[in-house]
Design a protein around this nucleic acid. Sequence first.
RNA 1: GCGCCGUUAGCUCAAUUGGAUAGAGCGUUGGUCUACGGAACCAAAGGCUAGGGAUUCGAGUUCCUUACGGCGCACCA
Length: 575
Amino acid sequence: MDYKAYIAEKLAVDGVSPEEILESIAVPPDPTLGDYALPCFKFAKILRKSPVAIAEELAKRYETDEIVSSVSAVNGYLNFQVDRAGLFKNFRESFSPLLTEEGEKAWTGYAAREFTKNSDMGAKKTVCIDYSSVNIAKPFHIGHLSTTVIGGALSRIYRFLGYNVVGINHLGDYGTQFGKLISAYKRWGNRADVEAGGIHAINDLYVRFNSEATEEMEAEAREYFRLIENGDREANELFETFKSITLAYVKKIYDRLHVTFDSYCGESFYIDKIPAVIEKLEKKGLLVESRGAKVVDLEEYGMPPFIVLRSDGASLYATRDLAAAFYRKETYDFDKCLYVVAYQQNLHFQQLFRVIERMGEPWAKDLVHVAYGMVSLEDGAMSTRKGKVVWLEDVLSRSVEKAAAILAEKNPDLKDREKVAEQVGVGAVIFGALYNNKIKDIVFSYDKALNFDGETSVYVQYTCARAASVLDKLGGVPFHSGEGAQLNEREFALVKALAEFPDTVRAAAVHYEPSMIARWCMNAAQLFNKFYIDCRIVNAETEELRSLRKTLTHIAFSTLKKGLGLLGIEVPKEM
RNA sequence: GCGCCGUUAGCUCAAUUGGAUAGAGCGUUGGUCUACGGAACCAAAGGCUAGGGAUUCGAGUUCCUUACGGCGCACCA
């Protein structure tokens, strides 16, 4: 039920289009004013009457019914009160798949009726999401968290909306740093140490190379990189070893964060696809020589030139991104391609998109840089070389340890304690990374990352555990039919918040902003707790009330669980 | 120097396309347990939305400007 559309349909203002009326309908800040409102100020000029008079006149003309129960004019606003029984009926109807099916099946049914129809989103459209994009031979530090969890959340959100999602991990697997690594390995490393020490042993070799490198060693590194490129067997075997160690390592982290990828095509994958792109650029006459390099001029956009080939003829990161964009368009025929990369690279992506636009590709408009803020430490920027770095695995394990300790104290008899500690501890880290607008910079501190108080996933999970516990006790109580329900303030507020779930999911997708879902979870959980404190559920005064509240509790539990699930956070039944 | 982004309560942050009295959490102070999980709930205090100007019936939100902070600006990724 779209209340705004329903209200707008019954309103007519001379000289104002129905669309404009619909667009103007808003939600009042204070629910006691009404559920929806039409500000009449902008009509004043057209009608040459005061907004107050217009609102009063419209109020007089509007006929209330079983859907909109009352209308009032207040200070130039036309306020509408929705009939509560009717609201509950609609609410119950839209969430009905959750009452008849279980688990994923229920949500498939829900998505089919809520998202797929009457919408230009979803259905059969493909969205590519480039995120996480780890570097081979480098451990996962706290700076990689945002792209991974934002990208992971967007993947789930778009999939829920009915899109075909292609998650791409654009591996950093190409460049002279791998020559350096091989050089360092040959100098100081051996197979046994690397296999035992894993990714950190490899990283140590790389760090050592950088701190001790001489002219001669640099030359050697360049030679090793050349060997990799030319297909030298030993060099490539070594590289593959480093790659497989890295992938096995990040896989464990991805499992804990609940993110998955459909493609691990990294930079090296695009090397042989570069010539075709260069040719295309040349055909369009876009490639010009400047200071020995081949560039695309972007002066008309007020941007520095986009360097395609270095003066020695080698490709750059940007070249590979260009080739990757074409490859993805050809392979997946995406409707949208997202790059979840820190705002540091704003200019790079603006340039990339403009170059593709200048090449005459209409899909240039479908490329989106989903930029997010940077992470620093309390004493300044992170630096791998100076050892000023926070590894994600340490953050996760400390958070899980803390969760385990609290569980041991609060719920010593809990079964699956380890599993629950993992869900709570990892959840808190993910939620912390997704709760604020993504563009905000983050100063990392363990205090904040491991915070379980206040606006955290732990609060939402606890809310769910309470709800689940109540639902257990309600066993055979049937769900409410939806007819003639009387709602008190607490119930009404909760219903309204839960009913906003689909709009929130859509908005999160439109704005590429998972925090909107995190905020929704928090708000809904708060309202559930208020409801829970004030309203008896198991021992409700009447059968009717008991089934009404069970229905509310069930939908609240399921939706909160789904909301957190979209963010990559699991919900234990008990904690 | 040029460009992009940010600045909201003591702290960390919210605030649909411009809408009514700018909201949460943490911290502080004071309350609520013989009802379903106190990791909870209720209440109080706390604001010239960085400064100035403009547009508008109306601006935290749009435009201009200043300050402060972050990021970027030719062969790194």
